[in-house]
């Protein structure tokens, strides 16, 4: 707990400094929710707002989600955990935000907990990294020697199934979908305007939760995030009916890493995998 308190203190201190000095016009971090265990994303715009900032193990939200929403050239400070920092890097790669507009407040942390279940999410629904890959100011001590297994361990069960069983699994999960688009809203990479689901010509899938549209919506969304998903797991945590979307995203992240030798959001210099091609690409990937 002390590490979390220290991060909270540092967060307030840095936010105050940045806002007072006029370096940034907004600090994206976490604020109080209706109780301790339910903090919320919070945008501090004035020095008075800074006192409302909190940080505890339930602050799972990926704040990179809000970056593309701000007008270009807005100076923003954003608090990021490991996966969130990968989202920021990926957004910079995709030229949705500019590095020079950002002050990245890195939070090295492990043992974050799901607000709904209270479970630790390290390698279950998220990418199992402790330290942000990109930051200007680190709000806590860097974590060394953190090992929690591969983020892809959770896939073993599904990968072992045969095709029919897997289809049955996904059909059952997708049937729960009420098409609230919470997954889309929570995802830092879902910034398209309009989203293919909002387009009317062609209308790819029903916006209302008809069985016909389930596969089209989810599979296309998985495709759009292939090679870009940074495995923060926000989609599954946002889902009100608990569809394990992270499993599919993880699988595609794993395959893309294997095929393109590039993990999403690790280096600013990389080009996003799906708008690129490599000399090492071979027809093996189509087998």
């Amino acid at each position: 707990m002390t590490a979390m308190k220290k991060i909270e203190e540092n967060l307030r201190k840095e936010a105050k400094r940045l806002l007072e000095g006029g370096e940034v016009s907004v600090v994206l971090a976490y604020g109080r929710g209706y109780d301790e265990n339910h903090p919320m994303p919070f945008a501090a715009r004035t020095v008075e707002d800074v006192d409302s900032l909190v940080f505890n193990e339930y602050c799972t939200f990926n704040l990179a989600r809000y970056l593309p929403k701000y007008p270009p050239k807005t100076k923003i400070a954003v608090a990021v955990k490991a996966a969130d920092s990968r989202a920021v890097v990926q957004l910079i790669q995709e030229e949705k935000v500019r590095r020079e507009d950002l002050v990245i407040l890195g939070i090295p942390v492990t043992g974050m907990k799901d607000q709904k279940t209270g479970e630790v999410i390290d390698n279950k629904t998220t990418c199992n990294m402790a330290n942000p890959v990109l930051y200007d100011i680190l709000l806590g001590d860097e974590i060394h020697g953190f090992k929690g297994g591969s983020p892809y361990d959770v896939l073993a069960e599904l990968e072992g199934m045969d095709h029919d069983a897997r289809m049955a699994f996904w059909k059952k999960e997708f049937e729960k979908c009420i098409r609230c688009f919470a997954c889309r809203k929570a995802c830092p990479m879902c910034y398209c305007d309009p989203c293919f689901m909002d387009a009317s010509r062609p209308r790819w899938a029903d916006k209302s939760p008809t069985p016909d549209g389930h596969l089209m919506y989810h599979l296309t969304r998985f495709y759009h995030l292939a090679g870009r998903c940074i495995d923060c797991g926000e989609c599954s945590r946002a889902c009100p009916v608990d569809i394990p979307l992270y499993l599919f995203h993880k699988k595609l992240a794993k395959e893309c890493e294997d095929m393109f030798q590039q993990a999403a959001g690790m280096k600013i210099e990389d080009k996003p995998a799906m708008v690129n091609y490599g000399n090492q690409d071979s027809d093996e990937m189509l087998k």
């Binding site: 289809m167 599979l219 699988k251 893309c256 690409d281 990937m285």
Partner: peptide, 22 residues
């Protein structure tokens, strides 16, 4: 270079179909 991009896109499509159970 069109088909070089296509190769990556279709490779991912194949993985999606496969993981969905097709």
């Amino acid at each position: 270079t069109g088909n070089l991009y296509a190769r990556r896109k279709l490779a991912v499509t194949k993985k999606i179909l496969e993981f969905a159970g097709m």
